[in-house]
Structure formats: C-alpha cells, structure tokens
Write a protein that binds this DNA or RNA. Sequence first.
DNA 1: CGCGCGATTGATTCGGCTCAATAACTGTGG
DNA 2: CCACAGTTATTGAGCCGAATCAATCGCGCG
Lengths: 235, 235
Amino acid sequence: MSEKLLAPSCATCGARDASVFCNLDANQLADLDQQKSGGLYKKGEVIFNEGCNSRGLFCVFDGKVKLSMMGPSGKEQIVRFAQKGDVMGYNSMLSRSPLSATATVLEDAQVCLVPARYFFELIKKEPKFSLELLELTAKNWNQASRLITDMAQKTTKERLAEMLLWLKETFGLDEEDCIDVKLSREEIANMVGTATEAVIRLLSELKKEKLIELQGKRIRLLDIHGLVVLANLID
Amino acid sequence: MSEKLLAPSCATCGARDASVFCNLDANQLADLDQQKSGGLYKKGEVIFNEGCNSRGLFCVFDGKVKLSMMGPSGKEQIVRFAQKGDVMGYNSMLSRSPLSATATVLEDAQVCLVPARYFFELIKKEPKFSLELLELTAKNWNQASRLITDMAQKTTKERLAEMLLWLKETFGLDEEDCIDVKLSREEIANMVGTATEAVIRLLSELKKEKLIELQGKRIRLLDIHGLVVLANLID
DNA sequence: CGCGCGATTGATTCGGCTCAATAACTGTGG
DNA sequence: CCACAGTTATTGAGCCGAATCAATCGCGCG
C-alpha cells in the first residue's frame, strides 16, 4: 500500500448502497468507521496474497482489482474482479483457511479494511448483514459453477466471447462502446484459460466477423447479440 | 420421490453433528422436526431440477447424490456431490434465483426438506446457524475457484487423477481400497469435463502405470501419492 | 534513438474429440 | 436357465483445435 490515508466515511460512502453493508443503521456505520482503516493502492500493487491469512474484510471504495489464483504450473487464473462496493478476503476468514486468491490492482484503488473481529461481531449481531453476505456468496457460487461448466465444455472462442460479455457486465462500456477496463492480452488469456497467442488470434477473428473492434487494449463491442450467440449463452 | 415417510428425528440424527445444524439447541431441533418433511428417493430419481425454484433446503440423511448442471450443448457437468449431512438447494433461495443445478440420486437416499420460510427464520434468529452456513458457502467457493483454475489449466489426465482423489475424499475407500461410489464412465467424464472415451483410455493408462486397478465400476487406488503427484496437487 | 516489453504472426506438434465398430454387461421374459 | 435387447464399456482411426516454439513487429519510455 502506497500510503495510509483517512478512510472515506461509511455513512456517506457512495459504494455502500450496493454493498453488503447496505442494511446497517447509523450507529453501526459509526462503529464501522471507528474500526476500519483505509489504504490507497497503485496499479500493479498487491492488496493481499494467496496463501496468506486474511487481515480482514477488504471493501473497495474505488478503482479496479483482479482476483486470481496460481495454477499448478505457475500460470495465473483470474477468477473474479472487484470494484466500487465489492468486498474481498472474507471467504478466507469464514472458512478459516488461507486466502485462496491474490488481489492485484488494475487501476489505482482505495480500499478499506474491516478487521476480522468486527466482521464476526457484525455477523453475530446483525442478521441482516449475514443475510446480505449469504446472498452474495450464493451469487458467487452460482457464477462459479457456471464458470466451471463453461471451462469444462466450451471452446476457447466461446469462452473468449463470454469473457468479453462478462467484462462488459462488470465494468460497463464507455461512451465509445469500449469495455471500460484495460487488460493485457495475457490477462485476458488468464481469464479465458488459454494462451496469449490464442487470445490474439481469436480476437482478430472476432474482429473479422465484425463482432468487435480493436485499438490496442481498447476493445469495442460492435455486436453484443452476436457475442451472446457465439458464447452459447442462448441458443 | 417414491414415498412419503416419517422423517428421521433431527434430535437423534447422526448426520446432524457434521452439518450446518450442528449448533441448534433442543428447542430449535424440535421446531425443525415440526417444520421439515422427509422423502425417500431411489437411484436415478431427480430430487430437484435446474431452473426450477427451490422448495427449501434439502438435507441428506443418507444415500448419495450428484449435483450437476447442463452445459450449453446439453452435456452434463457434475459440480459436486452430497451425502450424509450435506445440504442442497439453499443457494437458490439465498440468491433468489432458480436452482443452478439438478440433484440426481446415485444411491438410494433419504432426504429431508426444510421449508424456505423456516430456513430464513433460522438465519434471522440464530447467528450461529448463519455462521455455519457462511462457513459452508465459503468452503464451497474455495473449492469452486480451485476447480475453475484446474479446469482451465490442467490436462485431462491431471484432472482425472484429481477427480479420483476428490471422490476418495468425498466417499472414502472401502475395505479393498476401492472408491466407495459407483459411477459410470460417462459420469466420471462429466466430472472431469471430457469425453467418455478419454476417461476410458486414461483410466487404462493409470492402470498400466500401477496407480489404480479396475474391476468394472470399482476403482481401486493403489498409489495415492502417485495420483497426488500426477494431479499436480503438490510439486 | 535504442532498449525492452507486449502484441502479432507463422509453423509445427500433439492432446483429445468425434465417429464408427465391437465387446461386455444388464435386466427381461420365455 | 437361456436367449434377446438395450445399455455401457472398450478399442481404433482420423481430424481439428489449441499449445508450443520461434521470429518479427510496434510502441512507450528513458
């Protein structure tokens, strides 16, 4: 972390409404403010590392973060992203096991840290918080099992199309219909589960098929429906 | 379900100690007994179906169940198993979405059903229950993200070795060191994410390499450490 | 301006999927 | 107890997608 800074106040945090903290009342938010600390992380920095113990629950105030695991042969696998309002590092606490993923900053991020003790206190005292958290983990599971199936059964091209759509859902499109995050070809390959060269070749196929346009790292989605069909998300 | 039957009492249920219900007190168990219903399912029967709404939380009293999803081209993908003490169908309730998997009986099973209303009541009233559930979903997530990485990065043979070890962990070995569950080659293929023929060929390779022995559906593990190494679970 | 990393393209190889043909096994009814 | 039909397991041959290796290109940056 580059520097310690005054964490943004939870009460006024714009990211909170959509987060697991959306149901806390004013008193609890004040408590949370007391307990938490904030940090500023620059692009490329690692917020936490797979295999270590979690220091608490990390809540992203702004910026973009990738969560990835090391594969058996040292290849990175990106398993999810986190941005404004998303929380990270809680699974490890809940399952009392080391962190299963590494969090790396894609775009400069402010991240708050809620210590484990207070996190568990919230669970014990605030059923609504537990429920939010359960809802979140349930959704994660749904997404994960879908991803398992896709990894196991889809072709590389189908998976690439699906990942582009996933990126669109996660980060949205800018005013020029470009996916609003900058990833290297290698990082895209590490989402799709393939080699960098394959991503490059397949992206240029998608371009030939008028589904996307490429300008360096910027990827413009020209035909979302076409991508959906290609990704086999519908028949 | 073949027949309605008197559900086993939660208070004396041997499966409960290791389940998410392990922390309930006598009163709550009595309530749970009141609320729940029981069912007997025969091999091959479907307990619930992907895409439907969950009728509640299913708790396996005995027997063996596979949980699978349909892939885009109609191929089954087995994502997990459930047996004594395992619960199913709760993710769908928590995320308020249709069931993400189909539960099919592998070996005759008795399964209790806790209605959604009571399930949510427990979460609201009993922080220890929420915590157990959170712990469970967190573990599931860890397993799922590991599986995503493996599917994306390992060879078919490595995945097969890993699945054999997973089956061993889940169902154990009988007195002859055979994995204690009967799966068709196709079902194994649907775990590994490959074609039936590939499983057959790779199983016979493993046999040649003296890692396993085959007698029909019975698979004897001869060299567990060898399988661990092959599966790349250690270096 | 040259260095170095990331992106791109090409050539080759190989794992694993598909299709096709047999063989073994299961349960069924005569 | 056997004959039959239907299913599951096995083996073989051919093909294709995608990984690997190698070389070049392009760009951002000191």
